[in-house]
Amino acid sequence: MAALTGKVAWVTGAGSGIGQAAAIALAKEGATVVLTGRRKGPLDQTAAMIKKAGGKSEVKAGDLMKAAVVTRIAKGIEKAYGRCDILVNNAGLNILERKWSQLTPASAETVIDGNLASAFYCVTAVLPMMRKRKDGVLIHTSSMAGRYPSILSGAAYSAAKHGVVAMSHTINMEECVNGIRSCAVCPGEVATPILDKRPVPITKAERARMAQSEDVGDLIRYIACLPAHVVINEVMINPTWNRGYVAALQRAKS
Rank of each mutant, 00 (worst) to 15 (best):
K60S: 12
P128C: 11
I95P: 02
P128L: 07
I50Y: 04
A91H: 02
L103V: 05
L103R: 09
I112W: 09
A74H: 11
K28D: 05
S150A: 04
S118H: 07
H140P: 00
G146C: 02
E78V: 09
L116A: 10
S101E: 14
D113G: 06
S57I: 10
A53S: 13
G54I: 08
A47H: 10
K56N: 15
L43H: 11
A74Q: 08
L87T: 07
C122R: 04
R131I: 13
I139E: 10
V137L: 00
H140R: 02
R72A: 15
G55H: 12
I77R: 03
G146R: 06
S107A: 07
R131C: 06
I50Q: 03
L127M: 13
G62T: 10
G154A: 05
T46F: 07
L64F: 11
A47I: 04
K56H: 13
S101W: 02
K134G: 13
A48Y: 03
A61I: 02
G62P: 12
V123H: 03
R83M: 10
R133T: 14
N115C: 10
H140Q: 12
A125M: 08
R39W: 03
I112L: 15
A47E: 13
T46P: 08
S101R: 13
E58A: 13
S118I: 09
A91M: 08
A106F: 00
W100T: 14
S150Q: 01
L138A: 04
R38Q: 14
Q45V: 09
A68D: 15
K99S: 14
S143C: 03
S142N: 01
S57V: 05
S118G: 13
M129T: 04
N89E: 09
A47G: 05
M144I: 12
A80Y: 01
G55K: 10
I112T: 13
Q102S: 13
L103N: 11
V69H: 08
L127V: 15
K51D: 15
G54Y: 11
S57E: 08
G62M: 05
M130V: 06
H140M: 06
T110Q: 15
E109W: 04
T104V: 10
R83F: 00
A31C: 08
L96K: 14
G37I: 09
A61V: 06
H140T: 13
L103K: 08
A108R: 02
C84V: 15
K40R: 15
Y81R: 10
Q102R: 08
I95E: 09
A108Y: 12
A68R: 09
S57C: 08
Q102L: 06
A108P: 00
G41C: 01
G146E: 02
I73N: 06
A47Y: 05
L64R: 04
M130G: 06
E58L: 15
L96D: 03
L64A: 09
I139D: 03
R133P: 00
Y121T: 02
E97F: 00
K40F: 01
K79A: 15
E97Y: 03
Y121E: 07
T104L: 10
A53Q: 13
P42L: 12
F120V: 14
I95W: 10
A74W: 03
T32F: 08
R39H: 12
T36N: 13
L43K: 06
V34K: 01
A108H: 02
Y81K: 11
I73Q: 11
S143A: 04
V69F: 04
